[in-house]
Measured scan of single mutants.
Amino acid sequence: WVPTKREEKYGVAFYNYDARGADELSLQIGDTVHILETYEGWYRGYTLRKKSKKGIFPASYIHLKE
């Protein structure tokens, strides 16, 4: 896992994603996520609506905010 280059990196989910394991994070369309790390097509972070739950999710489900 590699920390993100920018201190504040955010994105928005444009697909729903159902977590398949305890380390994964479920997403709903429109969720804003804070991205902490990246690795081979995956991000690690949390949604702003539930900051206490961190997990991994596919990068392809996220539109990055500039």
Results as ranks from 00 to 15, higher is better:
Val2Ser: 08
Gly45Pro: 01
Arg6Phe: 11
Thr47Gly: 03
Ile29Met: 07
Tyr43Asn: 00
Ser52Trp: 14
Arg44Ala: 05
Trp42Asp: 00
Lys53Thr: 08
Ala13Asn: 00
Gln28Phe: 09
Ile35Glu: 00
Gly41Ala: 06
Pro58Ser: 03
Pro3Tyr: 03
Tyr17Arg: 00
His63Val: 13
Asp18Lys: 13
Asp31Cys: 07
Leu36Ser: 05
Leu64Ile: 12
Leu25Gly: 00
Pro3Arg: 02
Trp1Lys: 08
Tyr43Cys: 05
Ile62Gly: 01
Thr32Asn: 08
Trp1Asp: 07
Tyr46Met: 04
Gly21Leu: 06
Ala19Arg: 01
Gly41Thr: 06
His63Phe: 10
Tyr10Trp: 15
Ile35Thr: 00
Ala19Leu: 02
Tyr46Thr: 05
Ser60Gln: 13
Glu24Thr: 03
Trp42Cys: 04
Lys53Glu: 10
Ile62Phe: 01
Lys51Gln: 10
Arg20Asn: 09
Asp18Pro: 05
Val12Glu: 05
Thr32Ile: 15
Ser60Tyr: 07
Tyr39Ile: 10
Arg20Gly: 06
His63Pro: 01
Arg44Trp: 15
Gly30Arg: 03
Tyr43Ala: 05
Phe57Asp: 01
Tyr10Met: 06
Asp18Ser: 11
Val2Arg: 13
Thr38His: 10
Ala59Leu: 04
Tyr17Leu: 01
Phe57Ala: 01
Tyr15Asp: 14
Ile29Tyr: 06
Ala13Thr: 03
Arg44Asp: 02
Glu8Pro: 10
Gly45Lys: 02
Ile62Asp: 01
Gly55Tyr: 02
Ser60Pro: 05
Ser60Leu: 08
His63Leu: 13
Glu37Asn: 04
Tyr15Phe: 12
Lys54Cys: 14
Ser60Ala: 14
Pro3Phe: 02
Glu8Phe: 12
Gly21Val: 05
Tyr10Thr: 07
Glu37Pro: 00
Thr32Trp: 15
Lys9Asn: 06
Tyr43Lys: 00
Thr38Glu: 14
Arg44Ser: 06
Tyr10Leu: 07
Leu27Ile: 06
Ser60Asp: 09
Glu7Phe: 13
Lys5Tyr: 08
Phe57Lys: 01
Tyr46Gln: 04
Gly11Arg: 03
Glu7Ser: 14
Lys50Met: 13
His34Trp: 14
Tyr10Arg: 05
Lys5Phe: 09
Gly11Gln: 04
Glu66Ser: 14
Trp42Pro: 00
Glu8Arg: 09
Tyr39Lys: 15
Lys5Trp: 08
Lys50Ala: 13
Thr38Ala: 12
Asp23Tyr: 07
Val2Glu: 09
Gly55Ala: 02
Leu64Gln: 03
Glu66Ala: 13
Arg20Lys: 13
Trp42Lys: 00
Tyr15Cys: 15
Asp31Thr: 04
Asn16Ile: 06
Thr32Asp: 06
Glu7Lys: 11
Val12Lys: 06
Trp42Arg: 00
Ala22Asn: 10
Glu7Leu: 10
Lys53Pro: 04
Ser60Gly: 08
Leu64Asp: 03
Glu7Tyr: 13
His63Tyr: 09
Phe14Cys: 15
Ala59Tyr: 03
Gly55Phe: 02
Arg44Tyr: 15
Asp31Arg: 02
Val12Thr: 08
Lys51His: 09
Gly55Gln: 02
Ser26Ala: 05
Ile56Phe: 11
Asp31Tyr: 04
Leu25Ile: 14
Ser26Trp: 04
Tyr61Met: 13
Phe57Gln: 02
Leu48Lys: 05
Lys54Ala: 09
Tyr10Lys: 04
Ile56Ala: 08
Leu27Asn: 00
Ile35Cys: 04
Leu27Trp: 02
Lys54Met: 14
Tyr46Ile: 05
Leu36Glu: 08
Leu27Glu: 00
Asp31Glu: 08
Tyr61Trp: 04
Ala13Met: 02
Asp18Cys: 13
Pro3His: 03
Glu7Asn: 14
Ala19Glu: 03
His34Gly: 07
Gln28Leu: 10
Glu66Thr: 14
Asp23Ser: 07
Gly55Val: 02
Ala22Arg: 08
Tyr61Leu: 14
Glu24Leu: 05
Lys9Trp: 12
Trp1Ala: 08
Lys54Val: 15
Asp31Gln: 05
Ala13Phe: 04
Pro58Gln: 04
Asp23Phe: 09
